[in-house]
Amino acid sequence: MIEERPRALVVFLVAAAVGLIGGLVYAWFISPVEFTAVEPSELRSEFRATYLQLVGASFAVEDDWTRAQFRLDALREPKAQVARQFAEVTERAIAEGRPAPMLRAMSRLADRLGARTAVMVVYLATPVPTFVPSATPTRSVLLPTTSPSPSPTFARPDTPTPLPTFTPTPVALPTFLLVARERVCEPGPAQIRVVVEDEKGKGVPGIEVWVTWDDGADRFVTGLKPEKGSGYADMNIQPAITYAVAVAQSAVPIVTGLKTEPCPSSDPAQPISASWQLSFRPIPPTATPSPTPGPSPTPTETPTRTPTLGPSPTMTLTPTVTRKP
């Protein structure tokens, strides 16, 4: 009897171990748990990126921070991590050249999440279209309730939700100065032509140039037309639109208020619109300003640098009209 008890215990433990292994094999491989009715927090990373893109697009249409925040909260991750992921998705969207309104909204949302990066600043600096509220009376907007865990039936609150404190991040200042700005009248489409040179006046290829206007932005790179110079780049512009130009990593436009205007033409049947030729050179190292906290998230006006340069026969800041035959 005394010997039987330990033996029975050993038998029980061996049987339990076999049962445990059998149970795990069944639960993990034969009949694994299946997920249904999950929340966005359960999405795989690739789908999570798609979800974040959709939240950004939706924010562009709805312009509703509370709703966007609710959707982001559904990821159930620390805010800093969501902000970082959203910033990555936004940068990817910018690199893919998604439509400007979407990029602007995504940049604003990233900024609001405290994850502004240099590439977003050009969209933050562009004026935001006026939001026109719907004239039709609407009921409260319902967002999804989550299941199975009890939670959120979302209703638009009557009072605004307190927003997180905005912490400004450093903004890259221009590293190039405008050294010449020339109005050019010649047949052909009106353009903004940019020439980026080094300190010795040699064209610099591969410099990114941002052109922004009221409801859009475009980016091009110098050196893609080598026949016009290794530091040359251009872009066609439209009448009645005011453009601003930023060069390299500059977060603020260096030149603003560029507009094409009619040029005097000898043939009234063939009107000529003025182009702008802008030349840039690096700021001398001693004059390079250190980064400082940037402007408010959606500035209404962007600062313009006024270059001061020593006398040079090739450098002029006064617009001149060149009439080419």
Partner: peptide, 11 residues
């Protein structure tokens, strides 16, 4: 972690 097809109906 799953695909959007298993999100709840509301989501």
């Amino acid at each position: 972690q799953t695909a959007p097809s298993v999100l709840s109906a509301q989501w």
